[in-house]
Design a protein around this nucleic acid. Structure first.
Lengths: 205, 205
DNA sequence: GCCAATTAACCTACTAGTTGGTAGAGTGCG
DNA sequence: CGCACTCTACCAACTAGTAGGTTAATTGGC
């Protein structure tokens, strides 16, 4: 079935882009693994730019969908941030994905085709907004205390997570990632802490 | 003169690697600008791996030399950190170098030749050590107060700087870099601040 | 229900251009 | 001379992308 082939091409392209970014993968790489000819890839995706754009768009939508789900499932804002950080710590530790695809693409920004560039920008815009929203939730819950406004704190947290991801990637040190990001989140917790496991009263909104 | 050609090749290779990283520049790109043939580049640098390794090594040595000089010239640790951050803020704002070359190479890590990989690792090792040293200086001077040990704080600061660099690069927003990094440094300043210019007593070790 | 036309999906074989790298022939200088 | 350096001319392998043809399923007219 065709849908299947198109999906499998997209899947493998994503794998390759997570591993190598934009400049270091080729149609031939995909063709080899998916067991189709390069022409088939061109049939489904007119150009490398189009294929890459769709990969990043789907990646972004997937991430944002997961984050929205996380927001629904974990009301407590600090716990939600820790779950987010924990996800990446796990990816790094198990080498599932040692780096967020968009961190890699961000570095390659100047060499990306415009549509891909836009998707990467959208990714960080959305992620930063989610972080800011979660920080606001935490303030409303009385579980977080922000030294600065949530917009700046979200930018800072985003920077810490992606910077820690990058440096941990270089030294292959998942523990360093966990320590740095854990510390950054811990700093935002309200001074009077919920003593570990005592669940904050669950309350809609 | 040959030295001159070799130098010019190295210079231009560095420019290209700062702009595009490892995977998106070619011998032809260099040859065109330096006005020599590709064969000449191969005469001076046997392979792309060797050339890149030397570029990164020189870059690293240059950066570390500048940082040591900064340590000598600016005794006050917070001011030293701010000078370091200010350097990058300027690079980003004026688009001199919108991203540290090693940030880009860190993202490309999995596709780098081994010798280049090692150089990138050495870069971050050295930079982190310099930051830790500066933080220690600040504590000794009474100008900084670290919530955690200097090794972890250095890792955190490194992550903030490189993460902010990456995200600012995506959104082309030097102000965001300055705000995030400035905040991170500000947080480390001792609660009772030296009122701006009062120099801490200079004391060897 | 049957046959012709169309279409989606895929192929092989190719293009033009680029990649890193090499061979070997100058060139100019001490 | 011999040596350091640079060149032209080439290579095989790879790049994204194209041309043109082959299936097999789907559609529409009768």
């Amino acid at each position: 079935m065709s849908t299947d082939t198109a999906q499998r091409i997209l899947d493998r392209a994503q794998d390759l882009m997570i591993e190598r970014g934009y400049n270091a993968f080729s149609y031939a790489d995909i063709a080899e693994v998916v067991k189709v000819s390069k022409a088939t890839i061109h049939f489904h995706y007119a150009s490398k730019a189009v294929l890459s754009e769709q990969v990043v768009r789907r990646y972004r939508e997937g991430v944002m969908s997961n984050l929205r789900q996380l927001s629904r499932q974990v009301a407590d804002a600090p716990a939600r941030l820790e779950a987010y950080a924990g996800y990446w710590e796990n990816c790094i530790r198990t080498n599932t994905a040692p780096l967020c695809m968009c961190a890699l693409l961000a570095a390659e920004m100047l060499t990306l085709p415009d549509p891909v560039k836009s998707e990467v920008q959208a990714f960080f815009r959305d992620l930063e907004a989610w972080l800011a929203g979660t920080l606001d939730d935490g303030v409303r819950q009385g579980a977080l205390r922000l030294p600065r406004d949530s917009a700046l704190e979200a930018k800072s947290l985003l920077a810490v997570v992606y910077g820690a991801m990058l440096t941990a990637h270089v030294s292959r040190d998942a523990a360093a990632f966990a320590a740095v990001v854990g510390d950054a989140i811990g700093r935002l917790k309200a001074a009077a802490p919920t003593p570990s496991v005592k669940k904050a009263r669950k309350r809609p909104r």
